[in-house]
Each structure stands twice: as structure tokens, then as C-alpha cells.
Design a protein around this nucleic acid. Structure first.
Lengths: 115, 115
DNA sequence: GGTTTCTATAACCATTTGGTTATATGTTAG
DNA sequence: CTAACATATAACCAAATGGTTATAGAAACC
């Protein structure tokens, strides 16, 4: 039996799915909306100028990316944002910024050395 | 004449392009690589198991997203990361997290009120 | 029980994406 | 000048994306 190691590290495909999911204005709006309050898919669908199945698909993309979760409640599916995944994406970008700052620090050190 | 207002706000299409560009492991690696040091496209191309034109296209996607800039140097095109765009994306996600925290704060306030 | 509502999914379509090979142009090196 | 190298771009292709309509199942309402 394989023990699923609950790695905090994001693998490449996971990151692909997260950024891909965020690369669409409707989906970003769904994330914002569900961060503020839990809503059903059909309630979400009312907000956008597209069919229910289109919104349903957007929610599925967000779910596969781990950005939202769905919870049955009677005939409805309540959509909840998953802030932890957003936080991980944010931290990934923060690490990119750190790489840049490390480079600047190296350049500064080199300049100080030469002076 | 239209004065181009240098808005710090990211419009939807700009954000689409940024996240879309980040949704590919090769492109994220190019960003990381160019954050550390400026490199030519052909130097980049050596690092990946794909043709030069494929890498050239990835760089073009990153450039359209404002994540890198290209600078001619003789026959080469030096690719530089644009950390400011990365920072903006990071801040956007930080705002999403803030929306979540605001909600928690509201719920906490409600609980305190009821107590 | 029948109707309505919410969800799920299939089938389809146009466009975009991410790769390829081939070719042309510009720049440097000898 | 010529050869080699770096870039750019066109044409092509398969797969993925983002939408549609149609259909079916499940839960709730009266």
C-alpha cells in the first residue's frame, strides 16, 4: 500500500492547473465570489452571461486545480473557495521575487567587494 | 491624442496573459532562469528538450504577458525577467487572501456580537 | 405523483495552444 | 567573402479550451 505523503510542495502539473485555472476572468470572479460566501453552482451561473453548463465547467476546472471544493446540500452543490491553494500560489510567486532579490544582493556584494 | 495612463491596475486581459504564461513548467523555468541571470534565447533553448522555435514561442508568450523583456545585443536577443510583473501577480493573489481574511473577521465579529 | 429545479454529462464546434519542420534574414567570425 | 550562428516566422498538426445545445437523473415542492 502506498502512503500518500501530504507534500506541501506543489508539483509542476499541480501548478500548471492552478495558474491555468486563474487565467480566466470568469473563474477568478468565481474564486472571489466564493471567498466571500459559499454559493451553489446555479446561483453562480446567474451572475455570468453564459449557460449553466459553461459555469459548471469553470467550477470543475477550479475544483481540479484545488482552488474550490464542492459540497452536496440537497439537490445543490455548494462551492467553497480553498484559500490554502491560493496561498500556495502566492508563496510560489513570492519565492520568484526572492530569487530576484538574491540576485540583487549578489550584485551589491560584488560591487562592495570591488570598491 | 490619447494619453496612455500608466495604470498600476491590471486589467482582466493582462491578468489572463500573466497567469496563462505562468501555467507552463517550461515558461516558469525560463522566468526563474532569467531572474537569476540574463540569457540569450538560444542559450535558453539548450536547457529544454524541444526545438529552438518552441522556446522562442515560449519567450514570446512571456514577453506578451510582460514577464520578460528582450534586448538586442548583436545577433542575440538577451532575455530579462520583469520582476515588477511577478510582483503584481503576487499582490493580486495577496488581495484574494485578504478577501478571505475579511470574511473570517466578519464571522468572528458576528460571533463576538452573539456572545 | 407530477412538476420544477439543480446538477451532470454528452456531443459538437471554433479557437487557441504547444509543438514540429522548413525557410529566410541578420550578425559575427575567419 | 563566405561560413556559421542566432533569430524570426510561416505552415502545419494534434490536443486542449471555452463555449453551445440537448438530454437525463436526483431532490424538492405542491
Amino acid at each position: 500500500m502506498v502512503i500518500e505523503t501530504p507534500s506541501l510542495e506543489l508539483d509542476d502539473e499541480e501548478i500548471d492547473r492552478i495558474f491555468q485555472a486563474l487565467a480566466d476572468a470568469t473563474r477568478r470572479d468565481i474564486v472571489l465570489r466564493t471567498l466571500r460566501e459559499e454559493v451553489s453552482i446555479s446561483t453562480l451561473a446567474e451572475a455570468y452571461d453564459m449557460s449553466f453548463p459553461a459555469v459548471h465547467k469553470h467550477v470543475a476546472v477550479l475544483e481540479r486545480a484545488g482552488l474550490v471544493t464542492k459540497h452536496p446540500s440537497g439537490r445543490e452543490r455548494i462551492v467553497r473557495a480553498a484559500p490554502e491553494t491560493i496561498r500556495r500560489a502566492q508563496h510560489l510567486l513570492a519565492r520568484y521575487e526572492q530569487v530576484w532579490r538574491d540576485r540583487i544582493a549578489r550584485l551589491d556584494a560584488l560591487l562592495a567587494e570591488d570598491a
